[in-house]
Amino acid sequence: MPLLESRNLTHYFDGLCAVSDFNLDVEPGEIVGIIGPNGAGKTTVFNLFTGVYRATGGSVLFDGSEIVGRTPSEITSLGIARTFQNIRLFKELSVLDNVRVAHYAQVRYNAIEALLQIGRYRAEEKRVTDRAMDLLAAFRLEDHAEEPAGNLPYGMQRRLEMARALATGPRLLLLDEPAAGMNPNEIVQLMDLIQWIRKSFGLTILLIEHQMRLVMGICERLKVLDFGATIAEGLPRDIQNHPKVLEAYLGEEVSP
């Protein structure tokens, strides 16, 4: 059974059709890429999957259950986590707290226990802190745990965003342009990182990307969007020479 099933997913902003009839099956363990020119509706698809927008039509099944209409925090707790195109860390909070916030749904004490520091409060705080630190260590960020997240250099902020997303305990990870603003060397490192994340956390990954090097390098399947519609899908090497894709990116060929 696919982990994520999108059926005729459609979204309108007032009269403007941002996504139309988006169909996608993502099998467990896959890395699937969504590409397309600017404004094609790629990020809108992510916003629909994570509940930021409520789809105008269609359905999305995650692990067999409908998620259209659920709130973002419910969907995240079910096991879909994401990063953002423009980094959205909690800048004034410490690196550690950024990751601890993302454990919100996994902490097992109630408000009364928190307010009076009784019951499970101490043990749970220790558990969450240790898990968050372990996760930071896996992303080589443990030495910066107590710094404000906004003070980290760009590359580390990208890594922290992934660590934070993983802290929610996802099964499906949505990466929105993870290579934005990276040089070729950093992109190679990022590809290794994504492969490593998939293997060590047992994840399924769906990513949006413009960098063809990254997309061709790690995606097993691609889906190409243009003006909200799917114009092609298949294996990376087939997509590369697909006439419709070339047209969307480069324009129509002029016959001599």
Partner: peptide, 26 residues
């Protein structure tokens, strides 16, 4: 106590970025 708890971190994250906070399961 509230500030230094799970809920307090939620409160702080709402100040920083409410949508991101929601998407991080808060």
């Amino acid at each position: 106590n509230l500030v230094y708890s799970n809920f307090g971190r939620g409160v702080l994250s709402i100040r920083e970025d409410e949508i991101a906070s929601d998407l991080m399961s808060v």
